[in-house]
Amino acid sequence: MKKPLLAALTLVMFVSACGAIRTSRLNPFNWFGRAEATAPAPLAAKPSDPRLLAAQIIDLKIEPMPGGAIVRATALLPNQGWWEAELVSGDPGPDGVLTYDFRLFPPLTQTAVSTPRSRQITAAAYLSDIQLGKVSAITVQGQGNALTSRR
């Protein structure tokens, strides 16, 4: 009777100590914070990609996964029918900020405006642990705004 009780108390003590890991930098779920609004960076005069920048970035999430992280951004567009969305990245700058441009093609024909939910489009990119080692912040920019998530 004493051994199972002692084992249960020991287990409870170990599990209660896990609360400190939740807020630790060792926890991969704490690698990047919430996205905050920033001003978009100036673009090159003639980008090599013919797609347009998204009108407004409304959400940015960095989701940890084994071997790296997924950068997922959602944009709100002026109407429906935009296609081939992609997060186009550059090299991390000297300050460790990795900037993505949210690029996509406009509709080929005139389309409805409808509800904001129907005009949202999501794009994602994968970053390995090696790529994340050089990065201190990730920025996704559109035409009107940018969102940044920092470590």
Results as ranks from 00 to 15, higher is better:
residue 6 L to I: 14
residue 7 A to S: 11
residue 8 A to F: 12
residue 8 A to R: 08
residue 8 A to K: 04
residue 10 T to P: 00
residue 11 L to Q: 04
residue 12 V to L: 15
residue 13 M to Y: 07
residue 13 M to S: 13
residue 13 M to K: 02
residue 14 F to S: 12
residue 14 F to V: 10
residue 15 V to N: 09
residue 18 C to M: 08
residue 19 G to R: 03
residue 19 G to K: 03
residue 19 G to Y: 02
residue 20 A to S: 14
residue 20 A to W: 08
residue 20 A to M: 12
residue 21 I to Y: 13
residue 22 R to G: 02
residue 23 T to G: 08
residue 24 S to Y: 02
residue 25 R to E: 11
residue 26 L to I: 13
residue 27 N to C: 08
residue 28 P to A: 14
residue 30 N to H: 08
residue 33 G to M: 05
residue 33 G to T: 05
residue 34 R to E: 15
residue 36 E to L: 09
residue 36 E to I: 09
residue 37 A to S: 14
residue 38 T to H: 02
residue 41 A to E: 13
residue 43 L to K: 14
residue 44 A to W: 00
residue 45 A to T: 07
residue 46 K to R: 07
residue 46 K to H: 07
residue 47 P to R: 04
residue 49 D to R: 10
residue 49 D to H: 09
residue 50 P to D: 06
residue 53 L to E: 10
residue 53 L to K: 11
residue 54 A to K: 01
residue 54 A to P: 05
residue 56 Q to V: 11
residue 57 I to T: 05
residue 66 P to M: 04
residue 70 I to D: 06
residue 73 A to L: 09
residue 73 A to Q: 02
residue 75 A to E: 05
residue 80 Q to E: 15
residue 81 G to K: 10
residue 81 G to H: 12
residue 81 G to V: 13
residue 83 W to P: 01
residue 84 E to L: 07
residue 87 L to V: 06
residue 87 L to A: 09
residue 89 S to R: 15
residue 89 S to H: 10
residue 90 G to Y: 10
residue 91 D to A: 14
residue 95 D to A: 06
residue 96 G to Q: 06
residue 97 V to M: 04
residue 98 L to N: 05
residue 99 T to H: 03
residue 99 T to M: 00
residue 99 T to P: 00
residue 100 Y to R: 08
residue 100 Y to L: 09
residue 101 D to K: 03
residue 101 D to L: 07
residue 102 F to N: 04
residue 103 R to M: 06
residue 104 L to W: 10
residue 104 L to D: 12
residue 104 L to I: 13
residue 107 P to K: 09
residue 108 L to K: 12
residue 108 L to G: 15
residue 109 T to R: 13
residue 109 T to I: 12
residue 110 Q to I: 10
residue 111 T to Q: 00
residue 112 A to G: 03
residue 113 V to D: 08
residue 115 T to Q: 10
residue 116 P to K: 00
residue 117 R to L: 14
residue 117 R to E: 15
residue 119 R to S: 03
residue 119 R to G: 01
residue 121 I to S: 13
residue 122 T to P: 04
residue 129 D to E: 15
residue 130 I to H: 05
residue 132 L to Y: 11
residue 134 K to M: 03
residue 134 K to N: 00
residue 134 K to A: 03
residue 134 K to Y: 02
residue 135 V to N: 06
residue 135 V to G: 02
residue 136 S to Y: 00
residue 138 I to R: 04
residue 140 V to A: 04
residue 142 G to I: 05
residue 143 Q to N: 08
residue 146 A to R: 11
residue 149 S to I: 12
residue 150 R to Y: 02
residue 151 R to W: 07
